[in-house]
Amino acid sequence: MLDFVQQLVSGVALGCVYGLIALGFVLVYKATEVVNFAQGDLMMLGGFFAFTFIGMMGLNYWIGFAGAVAAMALFGMLAERVVVRPILGYPQFSIIMATIGLGYFLRSVAGMIWGTDDLKIETPFSQGVLRMGSLVLAYDKLSVIAATMILCTLLWLFFNKTTLGTAMRASSENMLAAYYMGIPVKRVVSVVWAISAAVATCAGVLLAPITFIHSNVGLVLGLKAFPAAVLGGFGSIPGAVVGGVLIGVIESMAGFYLPEGWKDVAPYVVLLTVLLLKPEGLFGLHVRKKV
C-alpha cells in the first residue's frame, strides 16, 4: 500500500512537470489555434538563459529566474514575429512544420552555444526532502507541483476573467471579427507567445535540478507533454494539468507494476485508447463544422 502511495505521489510530481509544459502548448493553441511543436525547445532555451544568469554570471536565484523569464518573453515575441505571423491563417500543417523547423534550429544553436554537457543550476530547493509519516517527497518536486497549481490557476483566471483574456479567446474564434471589434489581433497574438514562452521558462528553470539542462531536454519532455495536452483536450487549461498528471501517474505505475519496457509505452497506449473513445480528449470542446 505504501509503495502504491509513494508511486502515486511521484507520478503526480512527474505529471505536473508534463502539465507545466503542456500549459504552454495549450495557451498558444487556445489563443491562435497554432500548435507549437517548439514549445519544449523554448523550455530548454529558458533553462539555458537561467543557467547563464545564475550559474555563469552569479546572480541571485530569484533575480536570475526573473531575468530568464523576461528575456524569454521577448524571445517568444520575436519567434512569433518572424516565424508565425506571416503564416497565421494558413492550414495547420504548415504551421506545425514551421514550428518543427524552429525547434530544430533552437536545439542546434543551443548545442553550439552552451555545448552538449548536462548543466545544473543551484536552487534553494535542490536539497532536502519533506517527510509525511513514511512518505518521502523531495523539495524540488514539491516546487514543481506548487508552481503548476499556481500557474494553472493564474492562467485560468487570466483567460476567463480579464479583458485581455477575453480578447484572446475572441481572436481565436474569429480573427477578422475580433479585429473589427477593435481588438489589436497582432498584438494579442504577440502577447500570447510572450506568456507561453514565459511559462515554458518557468518549467525549464524548475526542472533544472531534476532533469538537468541539455539541448535535447525539450524534445524528450515535449514528446511526453504533448500527449498530456491532447489527453486533456487541446485548448483546455485545467485539462492540460489533468492530462499531465494522468500521464505521469500512468508512467510511474507502469514502471513499478508492469514488466520492463512498459514505462515508456503505457502513456501512449492509454492516449490512443482515450482518443478512440473520446476523439476530442477529456476536456476538449466538440467543434461544429460549418459547411
Binding site: L102, F105, S215
Partner: peptide
C-alpha cells in the same frame, strides 16, 4: 565544423520553405 550546424541549417530550410 561546429557541432549541430547541420541541424540548424535543416531548421532554417524548413522554416524558409514554409514561409
Amino acid at each position: 565544423s561546429l557541432n549541430g550546424l547541420k541541424g540548424a541549417i535543416y531548421g532554417i530550410i524548413i522554416v524558409l520553405f514554409v514561409l
